[in-house]
Write a protein that binds this DNA or RNA. Structure first.
Length: 425
DNA sequence: TCTGGGGTCCTAGGACCC
DNA sequence: TCTGGGGTCCTAGGACCC
């Protein structure tokens, strides 16, 4: 039988922080989103207090004080590096791996149950990762990705499985009894809207959805939900994507630490974000044919005047040159900017992305200029990679950066910066 | 005071073509 | 009285994920 495993790190960001600050072990800890806005990772102690994902931090400050919850700003440099280490180990556990997110990976384990059961194999994967990187993970195994997700959910929630749950090792009856006790909202791809509509159709549990009529589901919800039902019945519709395709759009946007109203501040932010987006574009060897720029007032302040314009600037020809992209983004910003508003966020989106190798030839192309641009961008990226991001930047990004985000309590970048390494005290 | 950021896929509807 | 049928492309918006 097909055996797809989903390996998922437990409370990933909190677990990364605990690696280098063992004093956080056993304490209630949360990691906050950019600008220390919302809770994005919770330790088990915090989950047990009933605190939900994505709760705004300011709403739970009182509760946090009462229970001594420790809140850390997010340290994505650290998390990305730890993730890479986990993923590299997992790649050795199966010939077929899909890295699904920063803390999750699918593995195809079909036919790998030789001498031992897959449960034992999954346990050995767990202990390898714990021993080599220090991150705790759970493993779910099933004949489809959607079921593997659910098996992982069971492995996490029900202690008797000891962090590994293999649906393939169960009889159909046992599995259905299990699925009958899980709410339909836990299914991968069933969000808030679909949950309430399904409940209106008396489909409340995973088993209800599994047994529902494919035709009816197709008519009511479309092809996506129809596939989910098939996957719940053990028919794999979603294959493992082992090569990540290049992004079709690249977004860089951020809320400001404080609201800004001046064009000059917005210009700095837009240059900074375009610079980041262009770096991502070059790292996947692509060119962008257009760039969209947008700015936004704070939608939560309903008494303040609201304004959220956007503008797409087509480029004369596809490019990956930070200077050309910034020039286009700034011209868009200048057209949509109005004074008198308090802006809370800005962003840019690169669109019409093509492979650099597929650059279209034009009558007007200036090959010498293209070569100079490529050499400059390569040098820029090399210096910033070696000396640290932002070592070399466009002057227009500014130095003072009054708009930059709040990060009140960030840990060191223990594994990627020489002067921030963990040290014995 | 304080509410994340970055993606994907699907669908519907309009414009346009022959 | 009576006004085709089928296809493509693009865009905006919805829903969802982590």
């Amino acid at each position: 039988m097909r055996a797809i495993a989903l390996v998922d790190c437990n409370n990933f960001y909190v677990s990364c922080e605990r690696l280098f600050q063992p004093k956080l072990e056993g304490k209630p800890v949360v990691v906050l989103s950019n600008n220390d806005g919302c809770v994005v990772s919770r330790s088990q102690e915090v989950k047990d207090l009933g605190i939900k994902m994505a709760v705004p931090w300011f709403q739970m400050k009182d509760l946090a004080k009462r229970h001594g919850i420790i809140a850390l700003s997010s340290n994505y440099t650290l998390y990305a590096d730890i993730s890479n280490r986990v993923m590299r180990l997992l790649s050795q556990c199966s010939p077929d791996q899909e890295i699904y997110s920063i803390d999750e990976s699918f593995l195809d384990l079909t036919g790998m149950d030789g001498m031992n059961s897959l449960t034992e194999y999954a346990q050995s994967i767990r202990s390898t990762i714990k021993q080599c990187v220090g991150i705790p993970v759970c493993v779910g195994i099933a004949p489809s990705k959607t079921l593997a997700k659910l098996a992982n959910h069971v492995a996490k929630k029900q202690k008797q499985y000891h962090s590994v749950c293999d649906f393939n090792a169960m009889t159909a009856r046992v599995l259905d009894n299990l699925l009958a006790k899980i709410e339909v909202s836990e299914v991968w791809g069933v969000g808030r809207r679909s949950t309430s509509r399904l409940q209106g159709m008396s489909i409340g549990s995973v088993l209800d959805l599994k047994r529902s009529s494919a035709k009816r589901v197709r008519a009511e919800f479309g092809v996506v939900m129809e596939r989910i039902v098939a996957e719940l019945n053990g028919v794999a519709c979603l294959e493992l994507d082992d090569v990540t395709p290049p992004r079709q759009q690249i977004i860089c946007s951020r809320s400001f630490g404080i609201s800004v109203s001046l064009l000059v501040d917005l210009e700095q932010a837009v240059i900074a974000y375009t610079t980041r987006a262009a770096e991502k574009l070059r790292s996947q060897h692509s060119l962008a044919g257009g760039i969209q720029v947008y700015i936004r007032t704070n939608p939560h302040k309903d008494k303040a005047p609201q304004y959220q314009p956007a503008m797409l600037i087509p480029l004369f020809e596809p490019t990956d040159d930070t200077r050309l992209l910034c020039h286009a983004a700034l011209s868009g910003l200048q057209q949509i900017y109005r004074s008198g508003y308090m802006y809370q966020k800005a962003g840019v989106m690169l669109t019409e992305i093509i492979a650099a190798a597929a650059r279209p030839r034009t009558l007007f192309e200036d090959v010498a200029a293209q070569q100079k641009s490529a050499a400059l961008m390569t040098t820029l990226d090399q210096i910033n990679r070696r000396m640290g991001s932002g070592t070399l930047q466009l002057l227009g990004e500014g130095v003072r950066k009054s708009w930059s985000m709040r990060r009140g309590n960030m840990s060191q970048r223990y594994t990627t910066e020489w002067d921030e390494l963990a040290a014995a005290r």
